[in-house]
């Protein structure tokens, strides 16, 4: 009988490939998405869509392999799972988790050197675009499939350092039911 992929063990070794190859592949993906949308604004939506599918799988993979089949159910532990464990597994370092200023529904993950956008220079007439939309898609995919309905989007932040640098922030806006549930759990 043919052995299915599900019968195989997870490979424990953390395989690596060159960043160049990944960067080129990502650039081809951005190019493809750009050619397949009518307006450039939709580029982010398309990258987001590709990322969401990755997010679903990342949650499964990391819960089974790194967390001994446990999945976080509380809001903050889930967010730190995303910004620490997932970010490290995907991008090699942890992201900074921040709480939104204006709304209790909002959280942010900031990455000062997101490897996805390392080699991407955005032309001036595309300045509203951030290819981190792909990372935002991944975040949304992870949280959605962990039953934390939310929307995630990527934004470019001008850092007031010298010289000025840019970082990418993924803004996560949860559905109100998530925060209500969290309050219920806190009180019980």
């Amino acid at each position: 009988m043919k052995t299915s992929i599900l019968d195989r063990q997870f490979s424990k070794s953390k395989g690596e490939v060159s960043l160049s190859l990944y960067a080129f592949l990502f650039s081809e993906m951005v190019q493809y998405c750009l050619n397949n949308v009518e307006q450039s604004q939709q580029l982010e939506d398309k990258l987001h869509e590709v990322g969401v599918r990755v997010g679903y799988r990342v949650l499964d993979l990391l819960c089974y392999r790194d967390k001994a089949n446990r999945r976080e159910v509380r809001l903050l532990s889930m967010l730190s799972f995303v910004s620490q464990t997932c970010w490290r597994a995907l991008f090699g370092h942890a992201g900074d988790l921040l709480k939104g200023q204006d709304s209790e529904l909002e959280y942010m993950i900031n990455d000062k050197s997101l490897l996805l956008t390392k080699f991407i220079s955005v032309p001036r007439d595309f300045s509203h675009i951030n290819c981190g939309a792909y990372a935002a898609g991944i975040v949304e995919g992870i949280l959605q499939s962990a039953e934390f309905p939310c929307e995630a989007s990527a934004h470019t932040v001008e850092e007031s350092t010298n010289p000025p640098t840019r970082s990418t922030t993924v803004l996560i806006r949860f559905a109100s039911e998530v925060v209500e549930r969290e309050k219920r759990l806190q009180n019980s």
Partner: peptide
Amino acid sequence: AFSKMDKVSAELLALTYGSLVTQLLKD
């Protein structure tokens, strides 16, 4: 040559590529 390259997780590559192929199949 490989030891001198900047690296990235092979799983990130695999997942990205898989999702890209899925997108192409959809389009």
